[in-house]
Computed example of a mutant assay.
Amino acid sequence: MPLCNDSSRNLAVAVALFFAGVLYFSFSTHSISDHISDLLHNTNTPQQVKTIEFPQDELEAVLESAAAGNNNTVIIALVNRAYVEEVGEGRTMLDLFLESFWEGEGTLPLLDHLVLVATDHTAYDRCRFKRLHCYKMDIKGVDLEGEKVYMSADFIEMMWRRTHFLLDVLSRGYHILFTDTDVLWLRTPFSRLSNNGSLDMQISVDQNNVEAGHAINTGFFHVRSNNKTFSLFNKWYDMRLNSPGMKEQDVLQKLLDTGFFNQLGLNVNFLNTTEFSGFCQDSTDMGVVTTVHANCCRHIPAKIFDLTLVLSDWKSYKTSHVINKWSPHHKCGGSWKDNDYVPKP
C-alpha cells in the first residue's frame, strides 16, 4: 500500500511538473516573441518617421546616399549621350573620366560620392550600368543629347541648365564639388582644397596670373551651401535673361569683376594651375598635380585623344616617379582650326 501511494504521489508530481513546464514554455515563447516584435518595431520606427516627416524625391534620395560619410558633400558631373558614346579608338569621355579615379592616388573611394547627372536616357542607362549614383535631369523642350560644341547655342543652354540644377542642390543644404567630365582626377582634391571653413567657394582658373585678374573656369569648383552662395547662384542664374549669347562662365566672371562677390561678402579661393591643371596652362609638377582639365579645347574627339596621353603620362610617372613634361596637346590645339568638324547629332 505504501508503494502504491508513493507511485501515485510520484505520478502526480510528474504531471504537475509537465503542465508547469508547458505553461512556462508558452509564457517564455510569448515573451520572446513580443521582445523581438518590439525590437523590430523600434528598428523600423525611425525610418518610418523620417519618411513621413521628410518626404524624399528622387534627387534627394540620390544626394543623401552620395553625401553619406563625406561631410554632406557631393561630387557632381554632368553627362549626355555624346559623353558616353565611343569616339575614335573605342573610348568614351565617361570611361576616361572614371579610369582616372582608378588610376589616381586616393581617388577610387570618391566614386561612392559621385553623382552623374544625365541629360538623356542613353547617358542615364550607361550610368546605371556602371552602378554609380545616377540622376536623370528634367530637360523638357530641349535636346541636349548630342555633342554641344563650345559656344554653340545648345552648349550655352546646357550650361545654364547645369547652373539651375546646382542651385537646386545648394538649396537642399548640400556642399558641391563640381567637375566637368573632361577633368582627370589624379589625386584626391579634398586634401588639396583648403580646409578653412570660412571659404564659401574655391574655383579653378585657366592661368595663374593674378595681375591680369582671375580668369575663372567653372569646369571645376567647390562651393559650400549657405545663404551667401545661394544668393550668388540665384543671381547668376537670373542674369541669363539679360545675357544673350553669353555662356554661364562669362556671366559669373562678370559678377566677380563688378564686385558682386564682395557685396555678398563671399570668401573665395582661386585654385592654382600647378595643382589644378589644364590645357590652357600645364602644371609643371607631376608630384603635386591633382586634376587635369581639357580646357582650351573645342570638341570631344580632340579632348579624348589628348586626355588619353595625359593618363599615359601619369601612369609612367607613377611607375618611375620621374617628373617629365606632359605630352603636347596637339589635337586640342588644332581643334580651333578644325572648321570642317561636324558633331554627331
Rank of each mutant, 00 (worst) to 15 (best):
N70Q: 10
M1W: 11
K315N: 08
L167E: 14
M246T: 01
L170W: 05
G69V: 08
N269Y: 06
L311S: 09
E58L: 07
F18A: 12
H299S: 12
G197F: 09
F129K: 08
G219C: 09
A212P: 01
F129M: 03
L184C: 04
E85I: 00
M93P: 00
T43Q: 15
K148D: 09
L271R: 01
L311E: 02
D112G: 09
L307H: 05
S33D: 14
Y341S: 00
A68D: 04
P55F: 02
F19I: 10
L309F: 04
S194M: 05
L184M: 10
G213T: 14
S225A: 15
D34A: 07
T291I: 14
R187Y: 02
Y341M: 02
V49F: 10
A61G: 10
L166E: 04
L252I: 06
M137L: 07
D200C: 07
S28K: 15
L252F: 12
F19H: 13
V310L: 06
D138M: 10
D257S: 15
L266E: 04
G146N: 14
V289F: 03
F190K: 11
K136F: 10
E211I: 12
G245A: 06
L39G: 12
L94E: 08
H113C: 05
G21Q: 12
R187M: 00
Q249M: 15
T119N: 14
V117E: 14
S100V: 02
S31V: 15
T181H: 03
D180F: 09
D34R: 07
L311C: 06
G106S: 10
F54K: 01
D206H: 11
N217R: 00
D180C: 09
V288M: 10
W160V: 02
L39S: 14
V74Q: 08
K303G: 03
C280I: 01
M93R: 03
A82M: 02
D112T: 05
V142L: 14
T273E: 04
K247E: 13
R224Y: 06
F261H: 05
T291G: 10
T163H: 09
L199G: 07
G245I: 04
L59H: 10
L199E: 08
M159V: 09
R161W: 10
K247S: 08
P343G: 04
D285T: 03
N70H: 10
L170I: 00
G197P: 05
L39R: 15
E157V: 07
